[in-house]
Every structure is written in structure tokens, then in C-alpha cells.
Simulated scan of single mutants.
Amino acid sequence: MQLIADALPEYEVFVPDLPGYGLTQPLRGADGTRTEHTVELYAKFVEALAEKLGLGPGDLLLGHSFGTIVCSAHAALHRREWAGLALSAPVTNNVFAGRLLPGAAVVELYYRLSQLLPETAGNAFLRSPTILEVTNVTLGVGWDQKLTDYVRDQHRQFFGGYTDRQTLLESYRASSRYTVADFAAQIDLPTLLLPGAKDNLSTVAGRMAVRDALPQGQLEIIRGSGHLVHYEKPVQVARAVRRFGREVGVTGA
């Protein structure tokens, strides 16, 4: 999310790692035992972090891709008084239905196969450079060489940055079994949807349905972009977030 943060210099931006990724360890219960990583648990994590940082009515909450599901679940279940909710590349459609089904079936098979392999082989499979390249080709839209090189480097650095295979598989299940639509009607916040015009992980009908289900929803299409709007059109996303912030009374520092 660095490019979006860079394009919002007047804002103080917090970008936490998802639990079990990057520098953030998997979450554990009060007794120290491992806890299953579900959408509900991720929503609690957002609530705990917001409470710790003192965030609320004067702040915007932004999620990207799977983060749009997590942030939507948080907004629906915890009712924190954010100024507004912005959802970049929102997951609006059930991937196991319609035109998204073939691709989802392949991804499901990939994760199921990774579970059958021994730990070392399974991790090698999950961090495969070939899989990363397939992801780049599948999700990229109109990339020039400079952007292609940048995205490849970002994925090389961070795509395999999970702490353990079980956490990764649980987060995959959470990301593939829910959409923003599951929580939209319960979100009592001004909400801005920012899908890429060529996002192949959503449909026009899905986006419109979510917008209409949101009590205070609005939709702004990011032209010339696919699902990876945070790489492809970060300035446009930041511009939309800034405009939305002004509408809901947040203007940055």
C-alpha cells in the first residue's frame, strides 16, 4: 500500500500487516493457544488496533482486496464510529459462481494440493516463482515494463511472507468464502467503493449490488485498472480517497 500512502502526504497513514504475515505474528487466545484465523477474528484485530491507536470519528478506514472483506466485517460487527470506509478493489462477488468459478476452482485446487504435501514441499509450492508469475499475468492490466518489474519485485519480497502454512490456508478460506456483500447492509458508515474498471475478480452487477446494499454507499470506478489498483493506479485511488475524506470531514494533517 506504499504508493497510495505516498500519494496522501497530508494524511497520517497506518498500514498494519495482517496477523500471521510480515512482522505481525499469528493471533493467540488469552491462554496462549493458537486461534483459528477467521474473518471475525481479523475484524476483532482491526477493532483492537483502532482502540489502541485511538482511531475513530476523525479517521478513515481503508481496505484493499481481502482487506475490503476484513474492514467490512469490522464495520458491520463492531460499529466503531469511523468518519468513513473506503474499499479499494472490493471483493463483491462469490468467486465460486458464474464466470469467476473456473479461476476459483484452479486456486482452490492449488491450496488443497499444498495441504497434501509435506511441510517443506508445501511451502516451496506456495512460494513458487511460477505461481507468482501466473498471478501477475492473470491480474495485471496494461502494464508497461517498469510497472511489471515493480510488481514482480513487490510480489517477490512480500507474497511469501506468511509465518506458517496453517495460517495461510485459514486466511485463504476466509478470503474465498466471504465478500463485502455479506456485510454491506449492516455497515452504517459512508462507504466508497473503488473497483478497477477491468477487475477480473468482480463483475459490474456485483459492484452495483453492493453499492445498492450499502446504506450510505457510493461507487467510483478506477479507469484503466484491474484488481491491482494499488500498483496500477495509486494516485487515482489516493485522489478519490482525498475527495471522499473531504466529503466526510477528514482533510488530513
Rank of each mutant, 00 (worst) to 15 (best):
P215N: 09
Q216G: 03
Q216W: 04
G217R: 12
Q218R: 15
Q218S: 14
L219K: 13
E220P: 01
I221E: 13
I222L: 15
I222H: 05
I222F: 03
R223C: 03
R223A: 15
G224N: 09
G224C: 08
G224E: 12
S225N: 03
G226K: 09
G226L: 07
G226F: 04
H227G: 04
H227Q: 11
H227T: 04
H227M: 06
L228R: 01
V229I: 02
V229T: 08
H230S: 13
Y231S: 00
Y231K: 00
Y231H: 13
Y231R: 00
E232R: 00
E232H: 00
E232V: 02
K233D: 03
P234A: 05
P234I: 02
V235D: 14
Q236P: 01
Q236S: 12
Q236E: 15
Q236L: 10
V237C: 11
A238Y: 08
A238V: 04
R239F: 04
R239C: 03
R239A: 15
A240I: 01
A240Y: 06
A240N: 07
R242Q: 15
R243M: 02
R243C: 02
R243T: 13
F244W: 05
E247H: 12
V248R: 12
V248K: 08
G249I: 05
V250P: 04
V250D: 07
T251V: 14
G252Y: 08
G252M: 09
G252L: 12
